[in-house]
Write a protein that binds this DNA or RNA. Structure first.
Lengths: 270, 270
DNA sequence: ACAGATGTTCACGAGAGGTGAACTTAAGAG
DNA sequence: CTCTTAAGTTCACCTCTCGTGAACATCTGT
């Protein structure tokens, strides 16, 4: 027989990895559940339980808590959906972007002038996150909504940002996120990527030549803040069919460079 | 000596309130912490601990979890801030609004035509939540951002929505949220509010006569969906000084009614 | 270099929270 | 209208999570 003390020491044998972060399981579960609601566009207890692997009771308790705290709503037909409280959190998250209004005006202008889609993207946790987007008259249909996250290595904005981050940061990001294949033109070799980043730094802006989606191209340029650090990048995106040499390598980069200058100059006075 | 069963029953004496919901404390703590980041616009462990009353270690563990899950960011100066992942959740929450694009177009039109602020609001958890907002040329400065929540009884949109909810729902909302005083003109008496809602139903739209902020007035009208239920309400808001009788009771209501009709007609074809 | 504050780690134990099963309610089929 | 099936909710149990204070580490500014 064991005494209580002996039993206890057996229960906690040895931490598998002594350096792994200590995270709170219940919080992770709630986040997984919210993400499930996001992906399903609303679901019931059973669906969420199946999707996450948690028991029905667990899902029920989490959803009840989230509903009580008004982060989730029960609709008429009994499904749970993301609450509008996230609009509020999103608004306050966006307030971090000091140059938001400035950027917005320029992105609107770019979309109107070019007739294509224009956007502003920022780096976070090694992803590119779309902060603002405006559609021009002939803009392509892509699922690129505000809040959309994508890898940095295969977009114009992403490469523009990477080009102006310290090499160590870029290496860390590559290690963390990998260089996933999107199309046959996606850069998947680190050395090739670093060469590309050198070229971008030389000319001041980046091209996306069907590296994300076949047939889709883009031009992007970084916004450099007072401290000399990249704040983000703006870009114009359109179908390859509409982008002849003159436009893709001339007019569009000019428009973008002009907007970048306006933003950077006005940002210093904030 | 006690048997196991007897001991157990002693340990759980009597639930203080048998009907109180079972919520998960850790989740509530995380939400409180996120709300603190929201309110402070970014803060360190100590500040959040002071603000919430939780221990530093607790706050540290929660923030570490939220950062690991990429819902929060550590900035250069060591403070934690809301992550842009909330933009994504917000986007998916907003997808619940089927008529969003339709409403957006009309609100833009109203803002341009009137020169004032125009907006679309929806009810959730007994609050009015601003879903979309556009500023006209002369729009007033108010903190009415997308995601902003306010009580329903003292705004034009709020009263327009209440007027078309079942009386039982209205009573439940009043009970839950109360009729808070905003200005000397705020309706704080339930009977008076129900009379006002009758009047709104008669004429089809609602007025806010400085009931929220002194000097600020508005006109709002509900959007009624196919099932005959209120989807939300649109509104134009401006300074009382710019709203003479003719404009406030004539032109503005006409513009809004026209937009409501366009939205409702087009909504049936979705 | 030092003082004051902030962030991080640790051991411990109360009790939170996850679980399966039982129960209730709602929806559909025949 | 009843039976069947599935979904949501409640419950008692038990483990291990998570909150805590205090000690330790790290940083900032003068």
């Amino acid at each position: 027989m064991f005494t209580r003390g002996e039993l206890k020491s057996l229960r906690h044998p040895v931490p598998v990895c002594p350096h792994q972060k200590k995270t709170i399981d219940a919080v992770q579960r709630t986040l997984r559940i919210l993400e499930t609601l996001r992906e399903t566009g609303g679901a019931g207890v059973t669906t969420v339980a199946k999707e996450t692997g948690y028991s029905k009771a667990t899902v029920h308790n989490h959803l009840a808590t989230l509903e009580h705290e008004e982060y989730v709503v029960r609709t008429g037909d009994g499904t749970y959906e993301l609450g509008f409280r996230f609009l509020d959190l999103a608004h306050h998250a966006r307030r971090r972007i000091g140059i938001y209004d400035l950027v917005r005006r320029e992105v609107d202008k770019l979309a109107a002038e070019s007739g294509e889609m224009a956007l502003y993207t920022v780096e976070e946790h090694g992803w590119g996150v779309c902060i603002y987007r405006e559609l021009g008259e002939n803009a392509v249909q892509t699922p690129l909504y505000v809040g959309y996250r994508s890898a940095l290595h295969h977009t114009a904005v992403g490469k523009a940002i990477l080009a102006y981050l310290p090499r160590s940061r870029v290496e860390a990001i590559i290690k963390r996120r990998g260089l996933t294949v999107q199309t046959e033109d996606t850069i998947t070799d680190p050395d090739q990527l670093f060469d590309e980043l050198d070229a971008i730094r030389d000319r001041g802006f980046a091209f996306n030549r069907e590296e994300t989606i076949p047939g889709l191209v883009g031009v992007g340029a970084p916004i450099i803040g007072q401290g000399g650090t990249v704040e983000g990048a703006i870009s114009i995106i359109g179908p390859a069919s509409r982008m002849d040499e003159e436009r893709f390598y001339g007019e569009i980069p000019d428009m973008i460079t002009r907007s970048v200058n306006i933003i950077e100059i006005n940002a210093t006075s904030i």
